[in-house]
């Protein structure tokens, strides 16, 4: 059970949050221009890293804001949290 530092609310228990999977996957601006393979790449392909991973999290039982988090999946150390649209930190 992590303690997550919501960029809007501060430190809260993990039970208030939900994880939305890998971060920084941008929805293609022109999906119709994409081949099946390219669309499948966006739609289905996700990394599942043992180590430092960039993730989307939602403060579902709090401010309901989405934000990004850098977490090491091997030891659950959270390296950074930052707002949507902000540049990912270099870890």
């Amino acid at each position: 059970m992590f303690i997550i530092n919501c960029p809007y609310c501060g430190e809260r228990d993990q039970s208030e949050f939900s994880c939305g999977g890998e971060a920084h996957i941008v929805r293609p601006k022109q999906p119709t221009e994409l081949s099946d393979d390219e669309w499948a790449e966006y739609l289905f392909m996700r990394k599942n890293i043992k180590g430092v991973q960039f993730e989307r999290w939602n403060h579902a039982h709090g401010c309901r804001k989405w934000f990004n988090m850098v977490r090491d999946t091997s030891n659950d150390k959270i390296h950074a949290v930052y707002k949507m649209g902000e540049k990912p930190p270099v870890i």
């Binding site: 939305g20 941008v26 929805r27 989307r56 939602n58 579902a60 309901r64 804001k65 989405w66 949507m84 649209g85």
Partner: peptide, 13 residues
């Protein structure tokens, strides 16, 4: 509601 909020906040801010 969650899905709509997700798109609004992350894809179409």
């Amino acid at each position: 509601l969650s899905k709509l909020e997700d798109y609004l906040q992350t894809e179409w801010p």
